[in-house]
Simulated scan of single mutants.
Amino acid sequence: MNATLPAALDDIKTDFTELGLKDRLQLLLEFSNELPALPTHYAEHPDLLERVEECQSPVFIFVDVDDSRTVHLYATAPAESPTTRGFASILVQGLAGLSVDEVLAVPDDYPSDLGLTEAVSPLRIRGMTAMLGRIKRQVVKKAAA
């Protein structure tokens, strides 16, 4: 396990890197189908979500940090954009419930470590990297509030 990588993200990385290219894409598709639905509060108030402008598809994220400094992460991405939706799902599933410090310690290049650079465009990898960057920025902002 990577010292700075939380267990869930490390497991996801291992799952991807142990597969062949075609199976990695299938796993990404499976993640896209597993993106948790937004809680009603956020679904009814899309203005609370931040658009990830770097993504070609409309991706929106929202980070909440509770009193125990635990991170709660929500995201939405269109079903017709399975790659982007899969990336959002990986981050939601891999970062949810972590502490502020654990989220901020995730390497910024984590998306490049999934072994998908040969399968998806560099633009899409940059989109996932931008999602992670925005999540971290929101975590810092919310933790300081």
Rank of each mutant, 00 (worst) to 15 (best):
V103R: 09
R24Y: 11
T83P: 04
V63G: 01
G86Y: 13
V59P: 09
I61A: 09
L25P: 08
K22S: 15
L5N: 03
G127N: 06
P6C: 14
H72Y: 04
L35S: 06
V63I: 11
F31W: 14
S68C: 00
A75V: 05
E53S: 02
D47R: 05
F31E: 01
K142W: 00
L123T: 15
K13V: 07
L21C: 00
K142F: 03
V59F: 10
I61S: 07
T70R: 13
A43P: 03
L9T: 10
R51Q: 06
E54N: 05
E18W: 06
T117Y: 01
D47N: 11
A96K: 03
S99I: 03
H41M: 12
S121R: 02
R134W: 07
L21N: 04
Y74W: 06
L19R: 01
R124G: 09
L19P: 03
V100C: 04
L19F: 00
T40F: 00
Y74F: 12
C55G: 05
E102D: 15
V106E: 02
L98C: 10
L27A: 13
A145E: 10
A77I: 01
E102N: 07
Y42F: 14
L21H: 08
T117L: 11
L123M: 14
P36S: 12
C55T: 02
L132Y: 08
L25T: 05
T14S: 13
D64H: 06
L95D: 03
L25R: 07
R137C: 06
V63L: 03
L9C: 09
G20T: 11
Y74H: 13
I125N: 07
E53V: 01
D108L: 12
L35K: 14
V52Q: 08
T40N: 03
R69N: 10
P78L: 07
V100I: 01
K22P: 00
A3N: 04
A37M: 10
V103T: 07
G94I: 02
